[in-house]
């Protein structure tokens, strides 16, 4: 009797990923904030310092994962919010692809920046 509801099997995967990324982000975001606002004050940040941090492979990987997780969590959240507002049909498809493209661009740009920040010193 539920035939008129189209099945959307990725929904529970997205729901779960949203939670998993949330847990990851809570930890990393706290670390990020502490490091860049309390340990190093934002005003004192220079590319040299950034490069020093980014050159550590662990830090680099964490930041890239941080970026990917945050982008997924944020963009998926935005998409859910819009769906809950009742967006459906073509606008919904457009938004879905629009958001996907934006995510990919953001992640690509982020990784590119991170790579530049290593200054080629990544060990």
């Amino acid at each position: 009797m539920a035939e008129h509801y189209s099945s959307f099997s990725s929904e529970d995967t997205r729901w779960l990923l949203q939670r998993v990324t949330a847990v990851f982000l809570v930890g990393v975001l706290a670390f990020h904030f502490m490091l860049l606002h309390f340990v190093h004050h934002a005003a004192e940040i220079t590319l040299a310092g950034t490069t020093a941090r980014m050159s550590q492979p662990g830090y680099f990987v964490t930041m890239v994962l941080f970026l990917i997780a945050a982008t997924f969590h944020g963009v998926n959240g935005v998409y859910n919010a819009l769906v809950n507002q009742g967006i459906s049909g073509t606008p919904r498809t457009v938004i879905k692809y629009g958001l996907t493209i934006a995510s990919v661009l953001l992640i690509a740009q982020g990784i590119r920046v991170a790579w530049v920040m290593t200054g080629g010193n990544l060990i």
Partner: peptide, 20 residues
């Protein structure tokens, strides 16, 4: 707060892009 944060994420990456 979610909307603010996603907005900030994009801005943040844009600002950091000046490193290039």
């Amino acid at each position: 707060t979610g909307w603010v944060l996603i907005g900030y994420l994009f801005t943040h990456i844009a600002v950091l892009s000046t490193a290039i």
